[in-house]
Design a protein around this nucleic acid. Sequence first.
DNA 1: AATATTTTAAACAACG
DNA 2: ACGTTGTTTAAAATAT
Length: 393
Amino acid sequence: MGPIIGMSPDKKTEIPGMQEERAGLRGVCGVGTLPEAECASSPLATSVDRTGGTEDEELTNLNWLHENLLQNFTLGGPEAQTSGSPLFDIEGDYGSNQGPSSSSSSSSHSRGRERDSLKSKPPFSFSLLIYMAIEQSPSKSLPVKEIYGWILEHFPYFSNAPTGWKNSVRHNLSLNKCFRKVERSLGKANGKGSLWCVDPEYRPNLIQALKKQHFPAAHAFCTPPASPPSDIDAATAMMLLNSAPGHHVDPSGNSDSPLDLSRPDSVLVSSDPKQDHNYSSAALQRCSSRSSSSSLSSLDEGGCERRQSHRAGSEGFHSDEDSDLWDERGVHQTSRRPLAVKWPPGKRARREVKPELDEELKEAAGSLLHLAGIRSCTEGSKRTVKSTKLNRK
DNA sequence: AATATTTTAAACAACG
DNA sequence: ACGTTGTTTAAAATAT
């Protein structure tokens, strides 16, 4: 087990199999129709050189996120959403992909930043990345490979990162109860592995987590269709806000999704997601142990597959009470960590979000997001500075 | 400082 | 046999 001296990104300067891996992935990015330019255009960051990274870098990182996310969400077309247009493209090659930070006031700046961004890690946790990837897919479900693809596509940083991130992705999929495995089964038996989807019941939490990213754009990702600046926003918001159980609304009426998460028969949601999955011993204790749950692992409540019961342990998204979800506290309570919504430790019996509640959530979110949006900007930078400070030397 | 969460690494089994 | 996928454990890093 890894002695980790190397945990720090530094160690990841050389990744043997990286190249080939990328190549492999490239072929797979089917879902999002990877802008080839993208894959090929991330030569800049050949190594994740943290040592060189400074506060500056991190700041820029936020900037690119801010700029790009925002732009993509507000300017992008519906296509952008499902078709892998770089919603989060931090690729240095803006010009080719989506036009330079055109509208941005700092177009000149951004260029340098873009480069930095290639080296900087996205301020989103893997859980969020996965969430975004899945949500952006038309079918709301993706095989790991495509999740990789999406991430690579939108966060070129990973294309130069050590392959370990894939492991992390899988790890997250496996342990985070927000994600569910669905058999590809019926019909499309092609490909290895299963599809992964977001557990509808956890979407609110994911959204909340996203919201906590403090990036306006991220907000756009979860902003209720209150006053959508554009189609894509509306669509995206719709999409993400369908999060709540039973809210699988499809504005466009296009139910191209092979599996409708709202339908119990297509994706069964376990009725009792145990607690979070945490690695910390403390968590383990309080969670009446994961082992116990894993022991159940195979039977199960049917559903999306056996794991449910055992995967009960989420790791990523914990949220304080539901009410807390939209509590302003949550909004300005900046977490430096990419996301951290807390579930009440023990009492996280799969809560049922009622429709009415859902509406409230949306509304509340709408108003709060304004606040959050503003605040997040300032806090965002604050946070980066701080994080960078600590930033593994 | 203690605790909680996230990330990274790695081993291993199952599968195509 | 090999690569991918999925699960699990352990530990470091980071945030609260």
